[in-house]
Design a protein around this nucleic acid. Structure first.
Ligand code: MN
Ligand code: MN
Ligand code: ZN
Ligand code: ZN
Lengths: 167, 167
DNA sequence: ACCTAGGTGATAGTGATTATCATCTGGTTA
DNA sequence: TAACCAGATGATAATCACTATCACCTAGGT
């Protein structure tokens, strides 16, 4: 009741709604609505697998045999930037190691990737009781809080004040 | 009180204790205690930065100018395998994209990397009230539950029964 | 001191992602 | 509707974190 797998059935209607709004959202974000972008968001919304770029590429290729893998990478990144998609983890680029093996969680600055330890006793208690989750046997968990550190927050605020582009 | 940064001061004593037990733990894991391994765990325990392999390499080089970057990568991986270190996220190899932008979390099979959505309303409520965390401005969060899926769990059980190596 | 399984250093290879750049096109304008 | 052009795409090279290989070395047991 507290912690449950999301029902796969929900995805169909959700995807349809998102797809119908996509063109408008692109324009709002200043992006052209290209057949490639439509095909990519469609493939992404149609999958519950949290696919990699190459899987999207394979799917999209069936309708757009000339599409480039680079376009798929670029577009997925762009979709994340305008908030139409997300990465499952923002720390996929290079491994970050931790000598602290006591159970704890992390805050990550989305801009400079600074990481600090946090403790959330209530979360640990909540998860302690869960050994099964649908077809999964739970082994452990880690929470990643996305944040802006003081330094990066200050930089961004200053950039806004002086009218510079904010990313 | 519910969710707080871990005090940096704790790291000193913790590192000292871990370091003093390190040789024994290596032997228990069937690993030789080499100067390189000692230097690497020392550097890792001495850092609160959740460093990358190259940062560890730079630190260790000061005392071991001949150490190889490959050794640093290998050793960090080995330390994770024997439980003396961990990666901040297990999904750093290639990006996984998600078309579902509603707030939700994930279960990840540690073996086959299958990912499924989960909902944890209580966690979302807990975090909803947090907009500041020490010097960080909270933007969002995602919980990654590490698990074994049914299929991989079955495979592992079978391998154990027939006496095959389990990884 | 000697042996050997396992560890290391040097280096080549891999694979995902990014950069470059010539060409093309969505969407605005006249 | 045609002409225009900022931005998008495709082809391809480059990058970069990480892994594989292999000859040599050494920790730890005899
Ligand atoms: Mn940590
Ligand atoms: Mn998801
Ligand atoms: Zn920052
Ligand atoms: Zn699995």
């Amino acid at each position: 009741m507290e912690l449950q797998l999301v029902n796969e059935r929900r995805r169909g209607p959700y995807a349809a709604k998102r797809l119908s709004e996509f063109a408008a959202r692109c324009r709002r974000g200043g992006l052209a609505v290209t057949p490639q972008r439509l095909a990519i968001i469609k493939a992404l919304l149609g999958s519950g697998e949290h696919p990699r770029a190459d899987a999207i590429f394979a799917a999209v290729r069936m309708q757009h045999p000339h599409i480039s893998l680079a376009t798929v990478h670029r577009t997925l990144e762009t979709l994340c930037e305008i908030g139409e998609a997300r990465k499952v983890t923002m720390l996929h680029d290079s491994a970050r190691y931790d000598g602290n093996i006591t159970p704890h969680h992390h805050v990550v600055c989305v801009k400079c990737r600074r990481i600090r330890d946090i403790e959330i006793p209530r979360l640990d208690r909540l998860l302690a009781g869960q050994s099964e989750l649908g077809e999964f046997t739970v082994l452990g968990s880690s929470l990643e809080i996305h944040a802006l550190c003081e330094e990066c927050g200050a930089k961004r605020a200053k950039a806004n004040r002086t009218g510079k582009p904010r990313r």
